[in-house]
Simulated assay, not measured.
Amino acid sequence: MALNKTLPFLLLLLFRAFSGFSQAADSTASDSSSINHKKLYPIVVSEAAFYLAGMSYLQFIWYKDHERVPFHFYNDTKGYQQVDKFGHAFGAYVESYIGYKLLRSAGVPKGKALLYGGTLGLILQTPIEVYDGLYEGWGFSVPDMVANAAGSAFVIGQELLFDEQVAKYKFSFSPSPYYKQANGYLGDSHLESLFLDYNAHTYWVSAPINKFALRNTLPDWANIAVGYSANGMFGEFKNRTYYRGTYLPETERYRQYLLSLDIDWTRIKTDSKLLNTIFKGMFFIKLPFPALEVNSKGQVKGHWLYY
């Protein structure tokens, strides 16, 4: 599962990013003539510490009750209607985005920032897959690695092509109707369901409307977003029918393709340093807006507000 094991990395990096963004102006505006070592050293040390903390979490907490086995592979390409793969790419994107932005804020030249920061998502996610290959109940997933690489490549590719992140990779969550029907299988609380209920996940690519209109007709922060989600899932490949002494409802697994509006928080400029920092730190959050849904059941739906 994508978000379960990447949670320590994401939370720690987001915490670090907020402190880094509060010190940085527009770190991608131009290449700095010199590196600010007073900023760079704390970034390198803190990210190394976060990495060790995440590895310790995996080894001593996440896998502690699982038997170590010979290295093996696991093909989960079709799991969770590929929502899981979008989650892997999202985790890698967020980590690479933060790594790159922090290094640029310290004046690291663009090429080196992309090499060491833009690849951070893949660097952080790879040991998780290796661990999976060494413990019973999981396995090294090549599809997961492809998704991880895609998340980092989305950051690097845009910087090389456009010198900015034209499109942002975003996430939205809303408790699914299946959560209360699952008797704990999708989590015993809304917080747990954030990591266990893929029915509640939607992943978006959000880009400025002005880029498509080819003229500045709207504010720079006005975006259009395409999203992907799935529903009806009580299991990875097929639905479970029984859990904790309770029969689970029969549901049809289906995919959802969405079109909505959005806001690019990083393009909103204010005179408040605090607000600018908060907006930069919210780069991965999709704002609820009306949405149009087309799904694999052949339905077309409209949502007044889609989370």
Results as ranks from 00 to 15, higher is better:
K280M: 12
N183H: 15
N223V: 03
F279R: 08
H190Y: 15
D188M: 11
Y243G: 05
T277S: 15
F154N: 02
G245P: 01
D220A: 10
D220T: 08
P177A: 07
I224Q: 01
R244P: 10
T266E: 15
A147D: 04
S174V: 14
S272M: 06
A213P: 01
E252F: 00
F237S: 12
L274W: 12
I263E: 00
R244W: 06
F171V: 09
T217N: 12
S152H: 01
A200P: 01
T270P: 09
V226M: 13
F212A: 13
N216T: 10
F234W: 06
F195P: 01
Q181V: 12
K238L: 14
L258D: 00
Y178T: 10
L248F: 05
L274S: 07
Y257G: 06
Y198S: 06
Q181N: 14
W265I: 03
G227R: 04
L160M: 12
L248V: 08
T246M: 12
I156T: 03
A225N: 05
Y242E: 15
M233I: 11
E250V: 07
H190E: 15
A153I: 06
T270F: 09
S229H: 00
L274P: 02
A200C: 06
N210H: 03
S152P: 05
R253Q: 10
L161D: 04
L186R: 02
S172K: 09
Y247I: 05
A182N: 03
Y178R: 11
G184W: 11
D271L: 11
F279E: 03
K238S: 15
N199F: 02
T241I: 09
G232H: 09
Q181H: 12
L274V: 13
W221L: 05
L261F: 15
T266F: 01
E252Q: 12
G281Y: 02
M233T: 00
N216V: 01
S229F: 01
I263S: 00
